[in-house]
Design a protein around this nucleic acid. Structure first.
Lengths: 179, 179
DNA sequence: GTCTATAAGCCGATAGAC
DNA sequence: GTCTATCGGCTTATAGAC
């Protein structure tokens, strides 16, 4: 058996943190409560994570990496249609929907992790992919409603089957764009 | 001069709290900093507000009251079309956009004020007004994207002229609904 | 109405034993 | 890897003088 890249305890800490954050919000999820849920003491957390910030960053990073990769891919091949692009974006947010939910329920966590500018950039880059580099206000609102609503649906309808939710969400988002 | 219903200092405290919340988020705006901005000490706040929770509740209540009144009015006269209803909802959120922004940037404040159920009810009642009492998933996603996006636009495009923003936002929301 | 002083508690983080 | 014990700092909130 190969040595694990990430320790099992660290994984359990991440899982407990995500659980607690989903229940109470980021700011309300203290290291004390996370440790309690894992069944260890608070100082033991510090053996696995240098700080609370590092723990949070580790949670958010997979989503950040996947969105950045997706946007880079779409920008390098600018021939895609809107439904295809929004579908790929939906898939990424759905795959990381626990983190998506956390970020949407408290966007201020992004500022604390110095990610606010990056995420603001996502919105701008998606707008550019949909409507070009200088969208009108009418186009900006359409993009905002479509992309924001896509995230809302990912987080809100957790009981719906994936395929059905994906189709319904993309239908709504594409209707918003007038496509 | 009649005795004021609300003291001037209490108003200045509310204004300073909203300012600070807009800058740093709800949880990060402490009573110490609010008092500092008003130019008084922290215990002096407690002469005007019994607790931090009462101060926050006072900030949110005008939005809550206006939305409840709007929904009751729409439900008592169910003959309105979608654009008219969404327009009225846009006007309310825009009039209270400072508080709307606060709630959207940290929805967890609603849970702390026991308002989460009420706001969840708003979504359900708006869906019922738009699509009847038992909407399909496709209709639920359309309503979610339209209503959520409307709030996003209220908060995001603060520099746009009201009339232009209102028209663009309602165009986008109505396109989402397929109307 | 506002002040000084302080209580009581939670937070993130660290020291050092085992 | 996990523990006990603790530090410094922040929070909401109160007591009591002026």
């Amino acid at each position: 058996m190969p040595r694990p890249r990430t320790s099992e305890t660290a994984e359990r800490i991440r899982a407990a943190a995500l659980e607690l954050i989903a229940e109470k919000g980021v700011q309300q999820a203290s290291l004390r409560e996370i440790a309690e849920r894992v069944g260890i003491t608070k100082p033991a957390l510090y053996y696995h994570f240098a700080s609370r910030e590092e723990l949070l960053r580790g949670l958010v990073q997979p989503l950040v990496d996947d969105v950045e990769e997706l946007l880079a891919r779409l920008e390098s091949a600018p021939s895609h249609d809107a439904r295809e692009m929004l579908g790929a974006y939906f898939d990424v947010t759905y795959r990381h929907r626990a983190i998506t939910k956390m970020v949407m329920q408290d966007p201020s966590v992004l500022a604390h992790l110095d990610l606010a500018a990056a995420v603001d950039g996502w919105r701008r880059r998606l707008q550019a992919l949909l409507f070009g580099p200088a969208p009108t206000l009418a186009q900006q609102t359409r993009a905002t409603v479509a992309v924001g609503g896509l995230g809302d649906c990912t987080v809100m309808f957790t009981d719906a089957p994936f395929d059905e939710l994906r189709r319904a969400t993309l239908d709504a988002a594409c209707a918003t764009l007038g496509r």
